[in-house]
Design a protein around this nucleic acid. Sequence first.
DNA 1: CCCTGATTCGC
DNA 2: GCGAATCAGG
Length: 208
Amino acid sequence: MEWSEEIIAQLKDLWAEGLSTAEIGRRLSITKNAVVGKAHRLGLPARPSPIRRNGSKPKTAADKPEQPTSTAPTPQPSAPQPGATVISAPQPVAPSLAATTAPSTVAAQPQTSPAAAPTLAMAEDKAAKKEKTAPVARPSTKPKTLLRSISDPEPQKRRGPACCWPIGDPGTPGFHFCGATPIPGKPYCEEHAQIAYVRLRDRRDSVA
DNA sequence: CCCTGATTCGC
DNA sequence: GCGAATCAGG
């Protein structure tokens, strides 16, 4: 996997958005392991995970040469809260569709976890679950490079809201965003929202 | 069972 | 550096 700047940017962005590793992985067409691994290597802030993995390690040496002291630096990298930019729509969580996922972990998030598309996706959701595969096409052309917007915090500053679904490869002349009128409370238009908010139940397989 | 994320280890 | 495998908690 070639982690280009764009990819990394996306990873960071999505990570900062509070998406699940699996979610990010799906959207980047990579495994969650890759996401987590890279995230760690990048030094991204680990999000609330229930695991702690300490003590027992059958596979590893299980020895931790911890350094005693020193001066207790207490580094405070400060929380990555630049504003989440782009998509942050404090919308009321859809009541009925919460069945699929949306654990309480991200419930506190102002944007809540996507992973659930209203109405239209609901019906499709059931079917999709059975299918287990992702029938919906990934980001148009190719699930390779998306690029949210690392330096474009205000998508709707002077103009109306625009669907920010990436079209083309970032860096290429033809790259642009959808631009269509998004669904209220969502960063994408109705068309792209359907594919953007993929249900779950599909990870290591399907897209290869 | 499913989901989730973290760490470790072989490549 | 990369990610699969594995571990681990809800």
